[in-house]
Every structure is written in C-alpha cells, then in structure tokens.
Design a protein around this nucleic acid. Structure first.
Lengths: 235, 235
DNA sequence: CCTTGCCGAGTTGTATGCAACTTAGGCTCG
DNA sequence: CGAGCCTAAGTTGCATACAACTCGGCAAGG
C-alpha cells in the first residue's frame, strides 16, 4: 500500500462505506486531491477503480458522484449476492479441507459466544462473520468468483446492517452458520447452497424490514442484540 | 466515444479478444502510447479498466500483462457464468413484456434459419445470438447483474468458440433458444433457469471437448456448421 | 415575459517532465 | 569459479501545465 493511489482509494471507499460520504454527493478531482494531499492523477485512478466497482457513478466531462442506491437496486443486489454466495457455498462444500472445517467450526463457536452475551462486541462479531464468509470463498477456490463477490457484497455495507438484527434474527443467523459447517462436513453441496440461500434471504429481509427506520429508530426490539451479516473487509 | 482513453481501451480489448494480443504478453505504457497515438495518461486509464475487468494483470511498478487463462480458470468461469445467466433467465421469465417475447421469438427464428443453411453467415449468427442474450439480460432488469455478466462473459471470447460447434451442437443450441422463448412465454422462471443452465453447460462442454485442438484442427466434424455461444459486444 | 445565444468560471481530459522503483547484467571479492 | 553487490537502463508512479468541454447566468431580441 505504498502508492498514493491506494491511499486515496482506501480513504474514499472507507468514507463511502461508513456513510460519511453520502450517496449523490459530488467528488471533484481537484477537491479530493487537496483534501487527501495528493495530485489529481492518483485521485483519478482511485475514482476509476471505484467506478468499476460500482461505488461511484461517472460521466465524461461531468465528474463523479457517490452512487446512491434505490430500494430497487438493493433488492437486485441482494438477489445477485444470494446466487453468488450460494454458488460459493456449493463449490466450497466439495473442496473444503479438514483444516478449513476446524477453522469454520471455531468461528461459528466464537460467533455464538458473542451472540449469547448481553452486550456483544460488534467489532468482533463483524470480524468473525467476515472471516467465516471469507473462508468459504477461499475454499470455493475461484479467483474470479471471489472478485465478483467482493464487488457485489461491498455495496450493501453502505447501509451497514449493524443494529438492525433482533435477538431472533441473531439466533437464526448463528444457526445458519452452524448448519453450514455441518453441510460442509457432510460435503453436501446442495445442502450448503440451500442454507446459504436462506441465510442471505434472511439478511435481505432484515434490511428490507428495517429500512423504513433510517437511524436512531432501531425497529421495535431493544437495541441490545445485533449482528451484521455483511462482510466488511476482504482479509 | 470521443475520449482517447476510450479509443485505447477499445483497441486493446479488441486485440486481446481476437487473439492478436497473446496471453502473457507485456503491455508497456510508453509502447502502447506510441503505437496507438496517445499519451501515457489515457493508456494508463485503459489498462486500469482492463485490469478491473480481469483482462490484464498488473503489479505495482512492474507493468501489465495480458492475462492468460488456464483450463482451470476457464472451468471456474463457465460455472460462474452458468449461475449468472441462469439467474438472469429466471428473473427475465417473470418480467418479459409482450414485445420482448416477440423479439426473442424472431431472433430464435433467424438463428434457426441461419443454422439450416449449408454455409451460415457467422457474423450474423454471432450478432443474433448476442442480441438474444442481451435481450434476456435487459428483461432481467438488474443493472448490477448486467455489469457483472458483461465482465464474466467477455473472457470466454478470448478463445472464441467459432468453428467449434458440430452440427449436433448447433441443433441443440437452437433448440435451447426456442425452449427459452417458450419458458418465457409461460413465465416459468424455474423452466427458464433450467434451460439456460443446460445451454451454458453445453457450451462449456463444446469448449472443453475441442480445447485440445488449438486451431486449424476443428475436431472431427466437417467445418461447415458452427455457431458461437458467446456474446461479442454489449449493445 | 420568454426564448436564444453567448460568455466565463469551473471541471475534466490529455500531455509531459521528473522521481521512485524493478530488474538484468557485469564487476568485485571471497 | 561462484555468490553477492552495484550500477544503469527501462518502466511505472506522481505532479503539473495546458486544452477541451460543461453549465450556469446574463443580455439581447422577439
């Protein structure tokens, strides 16, 4: 990460994902260059990369804007993500090694321990969850799939699903993780696919259900339990 | 397309896809700039775009190379493409309008007419096939899916499957197109998905079967009938 | 008052000079 | 004779100047 272009890219992506750069807001090359202490060249490169990943929209001679996602876009995205993660799970089921299984089981246990607490450590939960999904992707052993999945999964994070999960949602999520490990252990691709499909569908449902409550209104359940079902950082 | 960066991008992509730029060959910025009458800046941008799409590999300070695809990569790719096109077909089934159906039926007819000839017009066949798949993607009405699909489908073209299809392969391909139209007409997503999955699997099989014959050796069937199953140009 | 054309400020697109890095080859030293 | 350092050529990464384009607003004419 010694290149300025990478620095700018990371800074922009982080800003977009954590919400400090709102959807629709304009991104001028000169402005960003000044703000991030770089020249326009690396800024341009970063913007182009983000555009390729769908995080910003660009038009010739008209500049770049942070893409803002309509509910319709989000629904498309979750459907697509569902297909891709299901595919990854199916491939992984017949390719996991013993060490992967041990690792996945360990992660599922950790997740469950966090979930049982009254005040789960959100950061830890997010990290564990991300590691779990990353491990599956790695086991699927398809570089191309991994790349596509990264670009698709990254977007839902714009509206990080933290503090959206009810205790019941959380329990179901943990159960899914456990069941996935079992399906992998049985090397049953169809089983793994089905569970993963359900897992993503549940995540979509949580998002869609709580979407009307933009912030500070975490639905009608107490704000004690939650788990993000998104994958914050690849590796 | 008034930008130099677009010109360079198109030229490079065309060169890679038609095989005149071999996998593994190096692409230096200065060399390309001279060759294509542009400065290094638009060349850089084009290379970055191609890298994002997976057509070239880059490493910091080490330059870009045309990615060369191992048989393993290709298998991954076709599996992924199968999922995505199947998803597109399923979505399309419940969203097609009457005008789409008419158009698709017309394209399927045209394809069949070409196929019945002793000497099908390859260009026409490729165009019709591309239009057919594009129409389905459009009917699926998911911008994100369309983008991902483009980047995934583009690669198999590196080894364009022209002159690989036996007459039997060709007949099957036509039958698939016809059946897809019927499934759409019935608005049966599962049916459409199944046919599309079969369609791509058949295409993969043709590629894998004839991969040992690099060129000039079009397998054991006479080189009279063929149809590409790939999508040359998005719109 | 509305339309139309023009102008200018601001932004993106391109060219190019310079610095930093990689790598291959020869040279020195063990 | 071989290993390792060092240099130099070549390439990429960055900065910046300049050209081309977009779009708001204003003024003149209908």
């Amino acid at each position: 990460m010694d290149r300025a272009a990478d620095r700018v890219y990371e800074a922009l992506r982080a800003g977009i994902l954590d919400g400090s750069r709102r959807g629709g807001s304009r991104l001028t090359e000169t402005g960003l260059a000044e703000e991030l202490n770089a020249s326009r060249t690396p800024v341009r490169e970063a913007l182009r990369r983000l555009a390729a990943e769908g995080l910003v929209d660009t038009a010739p001679h008209k500049g770049a804007r942070v893409t803002d996602w309509t509910p319709h876009d989000l629904e498309e995205l979750y459907d697509l993500r569902s297909e891709l993660e299901a595919h990854a799970a199916e491939r992984a089921a017949t390719r996991v090694g013993e060490e992967d299984l041990v690792r996945l089981a360990g992660l599922a246990d950790q997740l469950e321990q966090q979930a049982r607490r009254a005040q789960p450590d959100l950061e830890a939960v997010a990290r564990i969850n991300a590691d779990f999904h990353d491990c599956i992707q790695a086991a699927a052993s398809s570089r191309r799939l991994a790349a596509v999945l990264r670009s698709v999964v990254r977007v839902p994070l714009v509206l990080s699903t933290y503090h959206r999960y009810s205790p019941e949602d959380l329990r179901r999520s943990c159960a899914h993780h456990r069941e996935l490990v079992q399906a992998f252990r049985a090397k049953d691709g169809r089983w793994a696919r089905a569970v993963m499909t359900a897992h993503i569908a549940a995540a979509k449902d949580v998002l869609m259900r709580t979407r009307e409550h933009p912030a500070g209104q975490p639905a009608e359940h107490p704000p004690t339990h939650f788990v993000p079902d998104s994958i914050p950082e690849p590796r």
